[in-house]
Amino acid sequence: MYFFNRIKKHIVFIVLFTVLTQTSADSSEDLFRAAEWDNESALVALALREFDLNTPNEQGEYALTVALRNDAFKAFYFLLSQQSVRVDLRNPLGESPLMMAALRGHLEPARRLIQRGAEVNKPGWTALHYAAARSEPDSVEMVRLLLEHHAYIDAESPNKTTPLMMAAHYGHRDVVRLLLQEGADASLRNEQGLSAMDFAQRAGRNDMLALVADALQPRVPER
């Protein structure tokens, strides 16, 4: 009898473990489906069940970043309102929610993330790199926001590419102008020996080339 009672306990444990594991897997799927499809109600239900909203999916992504990538603002703002949600979790590419907001041009979400304590500076690629690489005119306001919150203007990517280099190749003319006005160093080179002028030249962007070249000209002190 003792032997059979032990077997029954093991069976009950296995069944409970299977149910809980399946429930957790289903909840994770619900989390990312809600983040992708902007389903705030589903997120509220998960929060009421005390499901961990910081749970990554199989690709190592986090719901806050997924919501931003999919322009799912209701989902994003709900997640951000939960104090348990960590705002600096990074995906396997090293991207934080603030970096995704910068890349997508989501100014108000970026501002709210910073208010929640999101890190503006970090080693490697930064939100400023991502903002500087956008060619849309509204990227200027994103760059200005990050600089106002002490983004390091000459931040180096893993291969020492700076935001100015990214802007000269991919970004908007006014972003290049703003970075130069705020003191970006146009003389820096990355590990391939390329400067911001080289980036502009390779992209065939003569307007950027002229801006950077002008910044490199020695200034005659005013008398």
Rank of each mutant, 00 (worst) to 15 (best):
T18P: 00
W37M: 11
L31V: 08
A102P: 03
D30Y: 04
F32M: 07
L43Q: 05
L103F: 08
A67E: 08
L48Y: 04
L31C: 06
A215F: 01
K160Q: 14
L68C: 08
K160W: 10
P158G: 08
F51H: 10
Q59T: 06
F3I: 14
K122E: 11
M142G: 09
T126M: 02
E58Q: 14
W125K: 05
A118P: 07
D174M: 11
E108G: 05
F13E: 12
F73K: 11
L16A: 13
E95C: 04
D174Y: 03
V140G: 06
Q115H: 09
E61L: 06
L179G: 11
L107D: 04
Q192S: 13
E58S: 14
D214R: 14
L128K: 04
R112D: 12
L216S: 12
Q192C: 06
L194G: 02
R134Y: 01
R223S: 10
D185F: 04
M142S: 09
R111N: 08
H150M: 09
A35G: 04
R49Y: 00
R189V: 15
P56V: 10
S96N: 01
L146I: 13
E148D: 15
K9V: 04
G94T: 10
L20G: 02
R69H: 05
E136H: 13
M100A: 11
S195H: 00
D198M: 06
L145H: 10
R144Q: 13
S187Q: 09
L179Q: 11
M100K: 14
L194P: 00
Q115G: 09
N39R: 13
E136A: 15
F32R: 09
T126Y: 00
E95D: 13
Y2A: 15
A196G: 03
A131K: 06
M142W: 03
L48D: 15
N39P: 00
Q22I: 14
E156L: 12
S187M: 08
T55I: 06
R223L: 11
F3V: 13
R33C: 03
H169F: 13
S139A: 15
A72N: 05
R144C: 05
G105N: 09
F13D: 12
L209G: 02
F13L: 15
L145Q: 10
V85G: 10
L147T: 13
N57H: 04
N206W: 03
E50C: 07
T162M: 04
K9H: 02
T162S: 07
W37F: 14
M208C: 02
A45L: 12
A184L: 09
L164S: 09
A203V: 07
G60K: 07
K122W: 00
E58C: 02
A184D: 06
R223F: 03
A215N: 05
D30V: 13
L103K: 12
V19R: 02
T21K: 06
A118L: 12
L46H: 08
E182M: 14
M1N: 11
D174C: 08
K122G: 08
A131G: 08
D207Y: 04
D154T: 07
N70R: 11
R90P: 01
E58P: 01
A151S: 09
G193W: 02
R189E: 12
E148S: 13
V143W: 05
A213W: 02
F4M: 14
A184M: 07
E29L: 15
A25E: 14
Q83K: 15
L103C: 03
N190W: 00
V176W: 01
D88G: 07
Y77D: 11
L79N: 05
L43S: 02
A47C: 04
F32E: 08
